[in-house]
Simulated assay, not measured.
Amino acid sequence: MNSKKLLIPMSLLILISIRCGEVKKDNQNIEVGTLIDSEAEKKAILETLNNETKAAFERDYDAWKKKWVHDSNITKTYIDFPENSFSESVGWNEISQFVKTFIEEHPEPEPIPKLLDKIDVRLYENGAWVTYEQQDSIRGRKRETRLMEKVNGEWKIAGMQTTIYGFDSDK
Rank of each mutant, 00 (worst) to 15 (best):
N2C: 09
K4E: 14
L6H: 11
L6S: 12
S17Y: 09
R19H: 14
V23M: 13
V23S: 15
V23D: 13
K24D: 09
K25Y: 15
Q28Y: 14
N29E: 14
I30T: 15
E31S: 10
T34D: 13
I36Q: 12
I36K: 09
D37A: 07
S38T: 14
A40C: 11
A40W: 09
K42W: 01
K43T: 14
I45F: 00
I45L: 05
L46Y: 05
L49A: 00
E52V: 05
A63H: 04
K65F: 00
K66P: 06
K67L: 09
W68M: 04
H70M: 07
S72A: 12
T75G: 06
T77F: 02
Y78L: 10
S85P: 00
S89W: 05
W92H: 02
N93L: 09
N93I: 06
Q97G: 08
V99P: 02
F102R: 11
E104G: 10
P109G: 01
P109F: 03
P111N: 10
K114A: 09
L116C: 02
I119C: 07
I119D: 00
V121I: 12
V121R: 02
V121F: 04
V121H: 06
R122C: 12
Y124Q: 11
N126I: 05
V130E: 03
Y132I: 06
E133S: 11
Q135R: 11
D136W: 03
S137T: 09
S137R: 07
R139T: 05
R139S: 07
G140K: 01
E144T: 12
R146W: 01
R146K: 13
L147K: 00
L147C: 08
M148Y: 01
N152K: 12
N152A: 11
E154H: 12
A158Q: 01
G159V: 04
G159S: 06
M160T: 08
Y165A: 02
G166N: 05
S169N: 15
S169H: 14
D170A: 13
